[in-house]
Design a protein around this nucleic acid. Structure first.
Lengths: 240, 240
DNA sequence: AAACATTATTTTGTCTGACATTTATTGGAT
DNA sequence: ATCCAATAAATGTCAGACAAAATAATGTTT
């Protein structure tokens, strides 16, 4: 690891060190599962104390870039970023972003249904029987009137997640997770009347039918109607 | 013996503290710009030492969740997550994810063009004259033969970023940044011959024309051709 | 000789205490 | 009243020490 640190001391030593190591990882100078020098060695090499090095390492650990292990064979290792970890990070970021910047409902809903529509053709083509069954199960739950609003939204979320996963493209699933899951708090703010729920469940059923028959046009039409209806609900909430 | 902490003490004190504070922020118990207790006070409240608290705070700072300021009125403040910061975080995560998990070209390209197509109808409807001009400028650059491969890819990236921004939906722009920018290293691996470049530039011109005339179908057709062609290049590279 | 228990060692995790640095406030001098 | 310096409060950094964990080496027992 050949890292120079001729930078300015104006931005915090631990941050500089963290950035140096992160850049080394992104550029590929540090490979996955490679072991970094021990904390004391890093401290010597950068000319700082061990706590400073540790703060830098914690920053990287917070981004899932490294993992640490104790013991003689321990140390800090470059972490292979898994889909699951990246997923969590994206959802956290997107949730905070939406929660802190009061996005208009319309924008968020527009983005979500537009992107979901992009997944739909692949889902129609590649959906499995198991995924169809999961969709049917969720629809059945949504038709029961005994659910709370949160429960209904949670089922809705699971439904759409299966829809996206049916496209069988990890990159798509990863990207979509951000929009869909981060919007759950927003969706929870919509209070669904009984009539709304039955209509939504019926549209979900249309979607599942289209997927089963592998007819892209019908699926897109059902999703569009669902998006428009959600928009209506959001607008009604704003005015009401 | 002191009181047990709720949860497993097996996961590192600083991580537990960081998680506790992060949850408080996400749940809204800590508002934006609110000041956290001082490090010494946090240390007392959690029953740990100051360095441990500091490591926890650094983890949160690494996620742009808090910012710190020195001085009497200083301390740690809940940070308003900006689009720019969230954008950078997403690009970093997506870049690492793609770089470390050797995604098949086909999957990445499929996802990218599918999502971009989802933005296109909005872009056709909402594009401004200034954006059209930017597109034309990039096309002109791409037609010049004097560019390096990296320069060509960079121009391509700028072209598509403008395309996405033309949809005028921050949520869409945010999501798309991940796919498009994180794929640049992949795209840089494609070596474009002169013939490829002219064809790509021509397709870009078709796209710009369709945006100018506000004809969605033509724009979608041009983008689809571009996607298919990129797929061909990727396949050729794999076999060559 | 082989299996098991024990000790040693290396590395991270945490604590204590101190000093340096930054910055708003406050009090005094002009 | 204005400007400037001392003050205080907070983070940033450092040093040394000990605790805890996990592997490797060692010794003991069967």
């Amino acid at each position: 690891m050949s890292i120079e640190y001729t930078g300015i001391t104006r931005e915090g030593l631990s941050k500089q060190i963290a950035d140096a190591i992160r850049t080394a990882i992104i550029d590929g100078r540090l490979m996955v599962d490679e072991r970094l020098p021990s904390e004391t060695e890093l401290a010597e090499r950068f000319g700082v104390s061990r706590p400073t090095v540790r703060e830098a390492l914690k920053r990287l650990a917070a981004q899932n870039l490294i993992r640490t292990q104790r013991g003689p064979t321990g140390g800090a290792f470059v972490n292979r970023l898994t889909w699951s970890e990246a997923h969590d990070a994206l959802v956290t970021t997107a949730t905070l972003l939406i929660g802190m910047n009061d996005i208009p409902f319309e924008e968020a809903i527009e983005a979500r249904f537009a992107l979901e529509a992009a997944c739909l053709p692949f889902a129609v083509e590649r959906r499995t029987e198991a995924q169809l069954e999961t969709l049917r199960r969720e629809i059945e739950q949504q038709q029961r009137g005994s659910m709370t609003d949160e429960g209904f939204c949670a089922s809705d979320l699971r439904f759409h997640r299966v829809l996206v996963d049916a496209a069988d493209n990890p990159v798509l699933s990863f990207q979509m997770a951000g929009v869909i899951e981060a919007m759950q708090p927003l969706m929870n703010m919509l209070t669904y009347r009984m009539r709304d729920r039955t209509r939504i469940a019926r549209l979900h059923a249309s979607l599942a039918d289209a997927l089963q028959a592998r007819v892209t046009q019908s699926a897109l039409a059902a999703l569009k109607e669902l998006g428009d209806y959600t928009l209506d609900l959001a607008r009604a909430r704003r005015e009401g």
